[in-house]
Design a protein around this nucleic acid. Structure first.
Lengths: 345, 345
DNA sequence: TTGAAAGCGCTACCAG
DNA sequence: CTGGTAGCGCTTTCAA
């Protein structure tokens, strides 16, 4: 990295003034702090004369006054922060889109969405760390939050706890993503098309297991009591890893593979094709998540679609729960997994 | 679902417990609030007897006490929150990875990273909204923050403001991403390979212009005073849009295209191939960002690589700036854009 | 119409 | 060793 020198100190930077408070504004405007608060918050219960308002606004602007959110919500006894722990792995396209929509929708309902960078804490410790921020609602992606964690959050004032996972958690609203169903659908599809020696890709990446484990379990489940075999195929998201796996293909003797998701499927499919494996003749491939890229591959990638909730619907669920915290937790089954059959299987 | 409001506290049913405070813990443990604070924070300057410690810990656990972060940092006068406004578009793979690394690295330095869901605010209003949280540092992705914004943040206590953009902003540390250079490199590459009628894809998606505009400008710049022409090609990230654009290809008479990034390149390349356009013979294609998927396409996608900063380096920059807020803003040129020539151009 | 003052939860100083 | 207490910045009665 290159360091670029700063412009000369001809423009002397002002001494590190401390940050202005409403008291400073009041002093400068020659009014009381109460008046400042009334003016800046447009409090309708109180009428302030126009000249005073102007003086306050001018003083605030001159000082660069910005209210202190923590002090405000401490006083108010509540905030409108919705906390979302950041996922333990870099977000995929599906999740990014979802978070984006969710944030937009909640912003429109006047909440502030905050993604909290996980500090490597787990379980109840993580819940406690989140609870310190006193969010009005918490949306937890993936498993890892137990009933005690929910309790911690609620006891520290969270009016809604929502989990986005495949398991229900006592006391929390649940958006149930049917990851087992994804695996089950994929395996059933391959079986129905006559495949019997079925590989299941499991990402090497840490943190991915929150999805890959149930997907694998679902596949196993679907093939229980059949004559099909399931072979677990660890795969890292790199060309090398894919090439290595593809090189073993003849030895593995598989006639089909469920590749965890469309991205891993694409990676593996390319490596297989480079090894001369014909798809779908020699080996059928199916992915999951129905990403756009799957439609761009040749052969077109079969996939299992699983809908994430629409950001707007989820935002409304959160809002409802916040306004009505006593209500029984809702559990929503997200649209069941469905196979989208294209050309690769 | 029906909600049953909590009954008044006269009944013995789950009283509407309010959130326990350190005063509650003190009362239950039979000590003062000060002692509670000492015990729970392991204050080394004060020695508390072992039995007292235990009583406090037990009381805290029994009540499910979690300290109130806002109150604490209000009292302390500072926090260790690093604020990162969420980008206005769903994060791409490059950015997700970067954020993930950055969060991890800062967590290890004992900061709390928070991604703040954009409330649709712009410019100084956005800066003010961020400033309300009194973060110790702010990392702003993309342009949109002016010198006044930086000033607002600093005046409200931010000890470091870092921009991740292609332009330097007065007063802020800068990580300069050479988006112009991306466009310039791509165009120069195409020109050097004999192409003269050059298309430049510009995403239709809102918010993407923060990158697409400089990339286009760079391409134009590189071809100024040459015999090459630049044609702007709006494209949405959908198959339909790509098909539409590809259908017009003969009319456009282009011999090459810089497709904004690898994902748009993949989309367009597929549509062109489906129209019978040969790549690179009829039309050369180059993307950008050097995503893995580009290597998986056939022909392999040429691309322009632009390095994002390593999360760890950036975390250290932030830490340095926080500890030494008086220091001159650093500006780091991120690795210049370099063409990775593969088979599509 | 404006001001004085209480108090949100917490920590740190100073007495006891 | 422990407790009393001031005060961080803000809003909101209640009085003037």
């Amino acid at each position: 990295m290159v360091q670029i020198p700063n412009p000369p100190a001809s423009t002397q930077s002002p001494a590190p003034r401390s940050v202005p408070t409403s008291a400073d504004v009041a002093r400068l405007a020659g009014v009381s702090r109460a008046t400042v608060s009334y003016v800046l918050n447009n409090t309708s219960a109180v009428r302030i004369s126009e000249p005073t308002r102007r003086r306050v606004h001018e003083a605030a602007k001159e000082l660069g006054y910005v209210p202190h959110a923590a002090a405000r919500s401490l006083r108010a006894g509540h905030s409108r922060m919705v906390l979302m722990p950041a996922p333990p792995v870099p977000a995929g396209p599906l999740y990014s889109q979802f978070v984006h929509d969710f944030q937009g929708a909640l912003s429109r309902l006047d909440y502030t969405v905050v993604q909290y960078g996980a500090s490597g804490l787990r379980g109840d410790d993580a819940a406690r760390a989140w609870a310190e921020l006193r969010p009005v609602a918490v949306l937890v992606p993936g498993p890892g939050l137990g009933p005690e964690g929910v309790d911690i959050l609620k006891r520290s004032g969270a009016r809604a706890v929502v989990t986005l996972s495949s398991e229900r958690v006592e006391g929390a609203h649940a958006l149930l993503m049917d990851h087992d169903g994804v695996g089950r659908s994929a395996a059933t599809h391959l079986y129905a098309r006559g495949r019997r020696r079925i590989g299941v890709v499991v990402p090497d990446e840490r943190g991915m297991d929150m999805f890959s484990v149930p997907r694998l379990a679902g596949a196993r489940d679907a093939l229980r009591d059949t004559d099909a075999t399931v072979t677990v195929l660890p795969l890292a998201f790199t060309e090398e890893s894919a090439a290595e796996l593809a090189a073993q293909w003849p030895r593995l003797g598989l006639d089909s593979v469920f590749a965890y998701n469309d991205e891993y499927a694409m990676l593996l499919m390319r490596a297989l094709q480079d090894e001369g494996v014909r798809i779908p003749e020699d080996t059928a491939v199916i992915g999951a998540d129905d990403l756009l890229l799957g439609r761009l591959l040749r052969p077109r990638l079969s996939t299992v679609r699983i809908a994430l909730p629409f950001g707007r619907d989820l935002a409304e669920l959160v809002d409802r729960a916040v306004r009505n915290p006593g209500a029984a937790p809702e559990a929503h089954e997200l649209l069941a997994a469905t196979v989208v059959h294209r050309d690769s299987s």
